[in-house]
Design a protein around this nucleic acid. Structure first.
Lengths: 207, 207
DNA sequence: CACAATTTTTACCAAATGGTAAAGCAACGA
DNA sequence: TCGTTGCTTTACCATTTGGTAAAAATTGTG
């Protein structure tokens, strides 16, 4: 019995860790890892800095905790891509789902984008251990659909990349869009536009 | 004659400012604005920190200088979009040009992305003063093409957004792609994939 | 060369930052 | 109610960071 007992966290622990992670998400996604400070996070959480460090071992741990929690959510939509369903509708469903996530969780999207932008120094392990196997599997599914002539012959990997970038931009580049579209709401046309784009790309060639 | 005389910079000034900006690009794009330090930039440039500050007034000035220089280059391809040319080929040419830029200038792309990600706090003025007018003009051009039935009816603004995001991802998310494609070279299929995607989207409906 | 202007170095500094030690306070079971 | 455990505060601290003052060295120029 030398191993650490699991010990479920107290109510107070659950609450404060939640407060900290919420504040940290805001700060990290706004200022980046380097620009974020423990003071800012503590202030946002309504706690003192040493109190923060009672719950987390340091800045990096908070950041990594945030990322790994996020990554689970992030993977879900891709997992749901079902080989048995209708190919075009499955892929369009994935686009829709991913776009909804970007629109509803912009801070999470930005946090992730920021980490990748800087070379993903803290999550490369996750990328190769969790994401890559899933990615490879889904690429194969897509390839199967292509071989069966059920969608147009696209490059599966680059198709997924395109889905990721076109959906996430609505969170990541939101500041730019706000300026360029002034009054308009980017959300409005985003769904329709992406549906049109990927439908025209994927529609199997008639003959 | 109370205004500052132009005074062309000495050879030594030109060289050192170049050294500094080159080093700064590397550091800022890798560590973000907040994570970048003057020491790191100075080291990269092979100068002492106070020497840096002889050429630039401070961290922010270096960063802003870098961004505004970059932004000119960034705009060019969009400016070249020619109303008189063949619509589909013009737009595909823009895609190609933008992709080449992302592949050849990944640091610049990342620097820009990082700034937008954080809400573009230092370049909002540029966005509304320079980019927006150009953006609006080109949206009108695209709308003209649509009205003439020369390309499929897409949302011009979102079309441009999609071009931006799908091209820039090859720089901004390069770390992720490296892991997911392991040995392969993302560059190879990128051009073909984007051409296929935007061609199928833009092809005018036959009737 | 002499002298002024430019460039670089040395020696600092105040504020911010990530983090710690230890005492005080609260909660809770026996 | 006592003692143990869990939580919070106060008071620090070493390092890093952006930045400055001023002397020293270098460069350009008549």
């Amino acid at each position: 019995m030398t191993d650490t007992p699991p010990k479920k966290p107290s109510r107070i622990q659950t609450r404060n860790r939640r407060l900290i992670l919420d504040a940290a998400l805001e700060v990290f996604s706004r200022d980046g890892y380097g620009g974020a400070t423990l003071d800012a996070i503590a202030k946002g959480a309504g706690l003192s800095k040493p109190n923060l460090l009672y719950y987390f071992d340091g800045k990096t741990e908070i950041y990594v905790t945030l990322l790994s929690q996020l990554l689970e959510t992030w993977l879900d939509p891709l997992i749901e891509l079902d080989e048995e369903g209708d190919p075009v509708e499955e892929l369009l469903g994935y686009v829709r789902h991913k776009l909804d996530m970007a629109l509803e969780l912009p801070l999470e999207s930005k946090l992730f984008a920021g980490e990748i932008l800087q070379g993903a120094p803290r999550i490369t392990a996750y990328l190769s251990d969790d994401l890559k196997p899933l990615f490879d599997r889904k690429c194969e599914v897509i390839q199967t659909w292509i071989d069966a002539g059920r969608i147009a012959p696209v490059d599966p990997a680059h198709l997924i990349f395109s889905i990721w970038s076109t959906t996430q931009q609505y969170a990541d580049f939101g500041a730019q869009m706000s300026v360029l579209l002034s009054a308009e709401d980017p959300t409005k046309r985003a769904h329709a536009h992406l549906e049109q784009m990927f439908r025209s790309l994927l529609k199997p060639v008639n003959y």
